[in-house]
Amino acid sequence: NGGIALELVYEVEGCEVIWAVKDKAVGNTFFDAGAAQFLIPSLEAAKPQEAALCKRPRYTTEEPGGVQTFTADRNSHKHGGWTNPGSALGPDWHQGIVLRGAEQVCDRPSLGHLGFPVSSVGSWPVYIHLTNRKTFGCDVIVSAIGVVPNTHPFLPGNSFALAEDGGLQVNDHMLTSEPDVYAAGDVCTACWEPSPLWHQMRLWTQARQMGCYAARCMAAGVLSKAVELDFCFELFSHQTRFFNYKVVLLGKFNAQGLGSDHELLVRCTKGREYVKVVLSGGRMVGAVLIGETDLEETFENLILNQMDLTPYGEELLNPNIDIEDYFD
């Protein structure tokens, strides 16, 4: 029910797709039920013309002596071990791939199985049994069930300290418990005292940020120079596209860790935008922006500045006020 599932059911065409979700709403990794209801009609709407192909740079690394060459680009894949490492999935992973069925059976997924996870899988090519006692015969099952740290290749012969979630513990310089060994991305767990507005979420954006920061820390260590925690760890931020909508998540966008001590402001225009703001003590601590809202920069500044917004109340999301100009 995360990003890959959301993208897959929207991009696949001409196939009968049955989307069985273990939760009561789609996309609950990122959204609340209100945002999910905003997105679902997009599955039945006509798709816009595809955007131009977006490619990332290709990187090549040679071992000493040029014995073996590893490449990592948007089209590479992992086939076990270190034989063919590849980059993590980004927002354009499906670009350049034909995701249309040859038989043109059906163009829209079925969403009639919310809240019923898979109970078992049988043979045929494959049968899938849900907890609501429904059974479906399928050609293929895509199991999109989240990310866990893959630390097993690194543990034998080492004494890495592991976090509760199984990730390699890293300090605020991305350094593990082993001397001169750094870790970044899904394999590690941030074990420093985080900013009140940041939390770890195993996404491609954070993996990229951690990787860049780890490289800086490694270089600083070699040169015996000090390096401060990167600014990207001050505020959680993630931008992607779901159902052809731009999606921006900021701070404690789902009120993570706030308990009941928070207030929500919501603005929704069907088929156009969904805006949710999380306030704590009158100050903005998180936001969900779906659509071309042009509010991400303004809200990012308001979250970082921790300005008291109590005097503005619900007018904060008044569509007739150009809030980005007001707080510029």
Rank of each mutant, 00 (worst) to 15 (best):
residue 150 N to H: 00
residue 138 C to I: 12
residue 198 W to N: 09
residue 168 L to R: 01
residue 284 M to V: 04
residue 28 N to V: 15
residue 39 L to C: 07
residue 279 L to C: 03
residue 28 N to F: 08
residue 126 V to H: 06
residue 149 P to W: 00
residue 13 E to W: 05
residue 48 P to W: 04
residue 296 E to V: 12
residue 264 L to Q: 10
residue 260 S to G: 00
residue 213 Y to P: 04
residue 220 A to E: 00
residue 151 T to C: 02
residue 155 L to G: 00
residue 177 S to I: 10
residue 25 A to C: 07
residue 156 P to G: 01
residue 277 V to M: 09
residue 313 G to F: 00
residue 45 A to C: 14
residue 36 A to E: 14
residue 116 F to P: 00
residue 231 F to G: 06
residue 185 G to M: 05
residue 169 Q to G: 02
residue 291 G to Y: 07
residue 36 A to V: 06
residue 235 L to E: 02
residue 181 V to I: 10
residue 49 Q to H: 12
residue 275 V to C: 06
residue 294 D to H: 13
residue 189 T to Y: 02
residue 153 P to G: 01
residue 23 D to V: 05
residue 8 L to G: 11
residue 275 V to A: 03
residue 306 Q to A: 12
residue 67 V to F: 13
residue 63 E to P: 04
residue 61 T to W: 04
residue 200 Q to E: 14
residue 247 V to F: 09
residue 214 A to H: 00
residue 174 M to P: 01
residue 95 Q to M: 15
residue 277 V to Q: 01
residue 158 N to P: 03
residue 212 C to Y: 07
residue 30 F to I: 05
residue 173 H to I: 05
residue 230 D to M: 02
residue 185 G to L: 06
residue 285 V to L: 09
residue 325 D to S: 15
residue 37 Q to F: 03
residue 289 L to I: 13
residue 200 Q to R: 07
residue 248 V to H: 13
residue 128 I to R: 09
residue 67 V to D: 09
residue 278 V to L: 04
residue 225 K to H: 04
residue 291 G to W: 13
residue 20 A to M: 07
residue 145 I to W: 05
residue 323 I to Y: 02
residue 67 V to Y: 10
residue 18 I to S: 02
residue 303 I to Q: 08
residue 232 C to K: 09
residue 8 L to V: 15
residue 265 L to D: 01
residue 220 A to W: 02
residue 58 R to L: 12
residue 155 L to M: 08
residue 32 D to F: 14
residue 201 M to V: 09
residue 126 V to W: 04
residue 310 T to L: 08
residue 14 G to N: 11
residue 233 F to K: 07
residue 39 L to H: 05
residue 146 G to I: 10
residue 6 L to E: 15
residue 297 E to W: 09
residue 105 V to Y: 10
residue 23 D to N: 13
residue 115 G to V: 10
residue 116 F to G: 03
residue 9 V to D: 06
residue 124 W to F: 08
residue 85 P to L: 06
residue 109 P to I: 08
residue 53 L to H: 15
residue 190 A to V: 05
residue 76 S to K: 13
residue 312 Y to S: 02
residue 307 M to S: 07
residue 140 V to H: 11
residue 203 L to P: 05
residue 242 F to E: 06
residue 227 V to H: 00
residue 217 C to E: 00
residue 259 G to C: 09
residue 251 G to K: 03
residue 85 P to V: 06
residue 48 P to M: 11
residue 42 S to K: 15
residue 290 I to V: 15
residue 197 L to S: 08
residue 164 E to R: 09
residue 279 L to Q: 01
residue 308 D to Q: 06
residue 274 Y to S: 15
residue 21 V to S: 11
residue 201 M to G: 08
